[in-house]
Nucleic acid binder design. Structure first.
Lengths: 211, 211
DNA sequence: GATTGAATATGATGATCGTCATATGAACAC
DNA sequence: GTGTTCATATGACGATCATCATATTCAATC
């Protein structure tokens, strides 16, 4: 009856539970505020055993972020093969900018929850962010590319779409006013598909104070 | 020679230095990671005196956030009286989505730095967020309102514009890749003005997993 | 110029956290 | 079935933090 447990397999399962618990807790509470002991308890283990799985908390942080991004990419992009252009963005925004996603911090996209903290993090974490984001943007860009235009244009529009979605969810979650939160989601669901259309001429930059 | 110091005036100046230091440090490092002692040292005081000015750290957090938002509203909206519609948004995005603003975390807009943490905060802080954001959105909406359409349309478009700007800065700051960060800013500077245009029909919401 | 009271400084307390040394107990090899 | 090895548990250490009690300093008042 060797259904599961070699020690090797058990350790793999424990590690997986640790990463899953960290990915949930860190999206809910932030990375720094999530204590190692809390993660281990949520994984059904005690705090000391942690260092048999990861060299330090930072390594867990990076792994948990990548796991959460992979999950989000899978869920967000699933079953949209037929859609293109504005219609694709309407679907993606409709799937992302929902009251359910707003409530489900622990299971939702890690970008609204963690991007600001990553911006203050070390280079390795920010490199993880860059590559994870790049692959998400590339997948979206593929669906809005126009044969005539360069592929960079599609990347740019996909990036703006992602920024709008992430910004909208971040602001809606911060709002203490339920009506305001709903309005943010609705307004951005409506606006997002327009980003599939062409992007007009260049923008200037002005002088003056930094913000 | 009563140039400045009554004790009353001195306390007012101290409080102001505390709030300014907190507003800077919290935008740079986050609210929770910013220690009271660090704020007081930056204000030229020692940590114990803090509780003569604020009942607790949370009160400082709220005051510092509101101060940073007021500063941002002033700087962002200054000197744009003539501009309207798409042209206004081009100016605002050009002023906000710059490499200088990306670097100047401590002096920049508090929304990319703090909105995610506010979303995990208590009700009072989130109410502050709502009212501060509402007044920023109202000022932008005034400049893109179209006489025919209802004023809610302008609010919605201003909100989407703000979400795009905040999301873009948040993602650009999180990127470990300088080229990627620049591309995010450029793409969103180009896309933002289009949000001044009318918003087409309604969006659906789909079923399925939360994100 | 002595007194008083407010503003700030000093130092301590209890809690929380990351990390690690060591103990325990169970699975595997022989 | 006995010894070994590895996954996990226990408990502790040092650092950091918010908060507060108490001490000090100095401007305002008499």
């Amino acid at each position: 009856m060797n259904t599961a447990n070699g020690r090797r397999e058990q350790k793999r399962q424990s590690r997986r539970r640790i990463v899953d618990a960290a990915a949930r807790l860190m999206r809910r509470d932030g990375m720094a505020p999530t204590a190692v002991a809390e993660v281990m308890a949520a994984a059904g283990l005690t705090h000391g055993g942690f260092y048999g799985h990861f060299p330090n908390k930072e390594a867990l942080t990076r792994t948990a972020f990548r796991a959460a991004m992979a999950q989000t990419r899978r869920r967000w992009l699933r079953g949209l093969e037929g859609l293109r252009g504005r219609q694709l963005l309407r679907w993606l925004a409709g799937r992302y900018l929902t009251p359910e996603h707003l409530e489900a911090r622990a299971d939702g996209c890690p970008l609204p929850a963690l991007a600001a903290e990553i911006g203050r993090g070390d280079d390795e974490l920010r490199d993880d962010f860059s590559s994870e984001t790049r692959s998400l943007v590339a997948a979206i860009a593929e669906g809005i590319a126009i044969p005539g235009a360069g592929p960079e244009q599609a990347d740019d529009r996909a990036m703006a779409f992602l920024a709008l979605c992430v910004g909208a969810m971040t602001l809606a979650r911060a709002s203490g006013d339920q009506d305001q939160a709903d309005r943010i989601l609705r307004a951005c669901r409506a606006a997002a598909p327009e980003l599939a259309d062409g992007i007009a001429g260049k923008t200037r930059q002005q002088d003056g104070d930094v913000m």
